[in-house]
Amino acid sequence: MRSNYILMMIVLAFFMSCENKAPHIEDVICGGNFRYWYKQGAPNRYHYFDVNGRKENFCISRSGEFMEILMPDFEMSTTWKPINDSTIIMYYDIEYHVKIINKETIVLNDDTLHVLKDYKYIPKDYQKLLGDDIVTGGFGKQNRIIK
C-alpha cells in the first residue's frame, strides 16, 4: 500500500515537472518591455504595445517620416489588455480573438501582424520606456495614463 502511494507521488511529480511553460500572451506581444509589430497588408503601418497596456499606431509617411496616426475627429483608444491566452481587448473594449501567436506572428481575427526586428525606421525618441517616458512613452505631447 505504501509503495503504491510513493509510486503515485513520483508519477504526479513527473507530470507537474512536464507542465507546458508556454509564454503568456502579454510577454509575446510586448516582449517583456515594448515591441513594434507591422501589418501584413500594410507594411508601413506599425502597432506599438508596451507592458503598461499602452498601444499606439504609427506609419511611415510618403515623405519617409515616422509619425503617429492621429484622427482629429475620432479619439482612438490607446490601451490593450489580455483577457486570456486567446483574446485581447483593443479599441474601446472590442475583443480580438488570437488565432495564432508566437514570437514572430500574431493572427487576430482577420488581421496578421509580424514582429518588427529592425528598428532603423523608428526614431530613438519612440523607443523610450523608462523614467518620465513611462506615461507618455515619447508618443505625442499629452500625458496618457492607463487606468
Rank of each mutant, 00 (worst) to 15 (best):
M8D: 02
I10V: 15
V11R: 00
L12H: 01
A13F: 03
F14S: 13
F15L: 11
F15D: 01
F15A: 02
M16N: 02
C18K: 07
N20A: 05
K21L: 05
K21D: 14
A22H: 02
A22N: 01
A22Q: 06
A22G: 00
P23Q: 08
I25L: 13
E26A: 15
D27F: 07
V28H: 04
I29H: 00
C30E: 11
C30G: 05
G31Q: 03
G32Q: 08
G32F: 04
F34V: 05
F34I: 09
Y36S: 05
Y36P: 05
W37K: 06
W37H: 06
W37Q: 11
Y38S: 13
K39A: 14
A42M: 08
P43L: 04
H47Q: 12
H47Y: 12
H47T: 04
F49V: 08
D50W: 11
N52M: 15
N52S: 13
N52A: 14
G53D: 00
G53E: 00
F58P: 04
I60L: 15
S61N: 10
R62P: 07
R62K: 13
S63M: 06
F66G: 09
F66D: 06
M67C: 08
M67T: 13
E68S: 11
I69Q: 12
M71R: 01
P72V: 03
P72A: 05
D73Y: 02
M76Q: 06
S77H: 05
S77W: 05
S77D: 13
T79A: 14
K81W: 00
K81N: 08
K81P: 00
P82A: 14
I83Y: 02
N84T: 06
D85T: 10
S86F: 05
S86V: 07
I88N: 06
I89Y: 04
Y91G: 08
Y91Q: 13
Y91W: 01
Y92C: 03
Y92R: 14
D93C: 11
I94D: 07
E95H: 14
Y96V: 00
K99G: 03
I100L: 15
I100S: 09
I101R: 08
N102A: 11
K103D: 15
E104Q: 07
T105E: 15
V107A: 14
V107K: 15
N109I: 02
H114C: 04
H114V: 02
H114E: 01
L116H: 06
L116K: 14
K117S: 15
D118E: 07
Y119L: 12
K120D: 07
D125W: 03
L129M: 10
L129C: 11
L129V: 11
L130N: 03
L130W: 00
L130H: 03
G131V: 03
D132P: 10
D132W: 00
D133I: 02
I134D: 13
I134N: 09
V135E: 01
T136S: 13
G138R: 05
F139D: 03
F139S: 12
F139L: 05
G140P: 01
K141S: 12
